[in-house]
Amino acid sequence: MKYLLVREDEDGHDEFWGRCAGVEGMFVDKVPRPREVLTLRGCDPEGVLRTALTPDGQSTALLGDVCVEVRDEEQPLQWWSLLDCVVIAHRPNREDPALVDVVVGACVEEGDDWSSTQQTAPRFKLFASLPGRPLGPAGQCRAVDGLFVTRDVPAPTPLTLIGCEPAEPLLAVLRRPRKWDRDWVGLWAVDRTGRVMYRHVVSLRIETAVPSVLGGALVDIELTDGGDDRPPQLARPVWETWWRGVPATRNQWAPLSTEARSEWLDLTAVGISGQGPDRSGGVHFLDGTNVTDAPGLHCAMGEALAGPGGYYGREWNAFKDCLHGGFGVTAPFTLVWHDADIARQALAQDIWDAEKGLTYFEEIVETLERFGVTVVLR
């Protein structure tokens, strides 16, 4: 059995709902959202947005992902995301020439509405995040033309539990005249040793429940919607490796693409609670042979400090959290980074700290040293 069904009861305890041999629809590539044209009206830009509007600026018009915070005078009310946002044009605002109207192209992702009341004069704060960089302020504007429109909702992608052996709570759901429920249940993927390697949440809206193609007393259960944030198709071979158990040798992630390496890092994060108490001192060796991108850097860092398949952050913020302790290794210690020039060159264009002019590689090294780690680059 590769999957467990688990639901949290009223007391916060995990309750076993069943298990199944496989899942069809676990790996799904997201349907690209249509691109739209919006106008950020009456902008007072800062950060990457200001740089993008400077004619002689070294930055391009790429803004990355932009968060639009809709707020009243006191608090935020909504968040919207403008994904892969680019500046198309800009011009002075007619009402106030000191401000600017910015025309952008982006994929719009609707955020959660935190307020039940519609504001007559909302305010808009902007935050932008270029690839590989943290979210930062990008200014504010008076209105966003094209934001509050009706958009088609993509049809849900179903998910089928194959060879399911339901426990009594799930059997009770299946016995109901209408064979579906609006409750949520955890779908846990386990490796051959029984270790939980991934946790996903799905809605128990059941379309069909039929005798399983695997025979016996098993059933195949089709759920209307398999939920958001399912792993993409390229994650399937990564999972096949981890289903055999936590990797026992280093660099199994090395042949993977940048995107697949990120999926590898997601699986390392599941086992962080089992890395034991913090220890300091000693010398750790980082094999930099395959550190050709940021995910590869974190794969190699995790293996250097926590062993094959180990976790020590999957991006910069998580990496910094690990240095504060609680993840098995804490400073002071020595990190010997072999073939460091491979990462230095591969990440030379990835400017992380624009003010200091530091690349992602340099920022990682500086952060280690600031926390008391002796870094030896070879």
Rank of each mutant, 00 (worst) to 15 (best):
G111C: 11
A52G: 09
L63K: 06
K30Q: 12
V219W: 10
S203N: 14
P45G: 11
G42W: 04
Q349D: 15
Q58K: 10
M26R: 14
P134S: 10
R19C: 11
F16W: 12
A340R: 10
G47I: 07
Y312N: 04
V336I: 03
T150L: 10
T117Q: 12
S257F: 04
C20W: 02
E95R: 09
V6H: 02
L99C: 07
Q233T: 15
W184S: 10
R244H: 11
R344Y: 03
S212K: 03
V23L: 14
D225V: 02
K320A: 13
R182E: 12
G139P: 07
E46D: 11
D278F: 10
R344V: 00
W242A: 08
E74H: 06
P332L: 14
G47V: 06
A106P: 01
A155R: 14
V365S: 05
G18A: 08
T268K: 01
G186F: 01
V6I: 15
N317M: 09
E207T: 02
R41H: 01
G18Q: 08
A346S: 15
W352A: 08
E165L: 13
R123E: 07
A138E: 02
G296N: 09
A155E: 15
Q140K: 08
Q119Y: 06
R176S: 13
I342G: 02
E95L: 09
A52K: 11
E168V: 13
V149A: 12
D339Q: 15
L256H: 11
L130S: 09
L265F: 00
S212V: 03
D220T: 01
I162P: 03
F127Q: 12
T193M: 07
